[in-house]
């Protein structure tokens, strides 16, 4: 058995295997947590129908039905919440000591981080596909009047949501990598989630705001994701699509880099 025990040589390829391993596990967990999947679909629909329907009964925005107007914003909201919340899983991994098993394996921490991002992005991708499909159906049925988009818009929207998700999963993981308890994680993220969400213009147009509020919305990276999505799905926007994309891609790269550092410094 002696020498034969080492017939498999661990090579650089192992980093890719490691990323796949982490992804495999995250995906299995996702599939088994049915309530999480259901909540990630039902909550946005409630926002759209109840909040959108309630406010939409009295308001319309520049000729667009209010529910239609916030639909892109609700998509971003759905992805924002599930992506940042994904960071809690690293806290759980630490709590159940599974993190040790991963950290003692011969793969780099960057690979662990990348595997986690792909895991979180997969969850959001599935969620986005379902919500976009529901959007098409609601549009067709006239539940959300005037919502009409084709296959190209569908793909582009998915791409924008995916870029958004990578940055938000990274932020969640950065916070999670420093937290000992899920409660602490929830406290910190709720402080972060609501300003990011409300300032993004998901629920109102950002072109008629007072100066101070306007300045804050420009600082929110999510503003550009909402704007891009509105551009693609409704054909109305504040900025040029390429400008929006440049900002969200740059932001995504920056937080991914920050995240790899955070994982490098992470304690067991």
């Amino acid at each position: 058995m002696g020498a034969e025990s080492y017939e498999f040589e661990v090579k650089e390829m192992n980093e890719i295997n490691g990323i796949l391993a982490i992804w495999y596990r995250e995906f299995k967990v996702f599939l088994r947590e049915k309530s999480r999947i259901v909540a990630s679909i039902v909550n946005p629909i409630l926002w759209l129908l109840i909040f959108g329907g309630g406010l939409g009964a009295t308001i319309s925005i520049t000729g667009i039905n209010y529910q239609t107007f916030i639909y892109p914003g609700i998509l971003i909201q759905a992805v924002l919440f599930s992506s940042i919340f994904f960071g809690v899983y690293i806290v759980w991994d630490r709590k159940i000591d599974f993190l040790k098993e991963v950290l003692v394996a011969p793969i780099s921490r960057t690979s662990i981080f990348v595997g986690k991002i792909i895991g979180g992005a997969t969850d959001s991708l599935i969620q986005s596909i379902i919500l976009l499909s529901i959007g098409i159906i609601f549009g067709q049925l006239g539940i959300i009047p005037g919502l009409k988009f084709g296959a190209v818009a569908f793909i582009l929207a998915l791409l924008i949501l995916l870029i958004t998700t990578t940055s938000m999963v990274s932020i969640g993981l950065i916070i999670g990598s420093r937290m000992e308890s899920p409660e602490g994680f929830q406290l910190i993220t709720s402080f972060l989630l609501f300003p990011i969400f409300f300032l993004s213009g998901a629920l109102f147009p950002i072109n008629k705001l007072p100066a101070w509020l306007s300045a804050l919305t420009f600082l929110d990276p999510l503003t550009y994701a909402v704007d891009a999505l509105r551009n693609v799905l409704l054909g109305t926007s504040q900025f040029h699509l390429l400008f929006d994309l440049a900002i969200i891609i740059t932001f995504s790269i920056l937080v991914i880099i920050a995240g790899t550092f955070a994982f490098e410094k992470m304690k067991v």
Partner: peptide
């Protein structure tokens, strides 16, 4: 330090993947 939402087999498979 195993993941209890996974099966025994899946935990071992995951380990094998992590070790390339």
């Amino acid at each position: 330090s195993s993941d209890d939402i996974l099966t025994g087999y899946e935990n071992l498979k995951l380990h094998g993947m992590l070790y390339g």
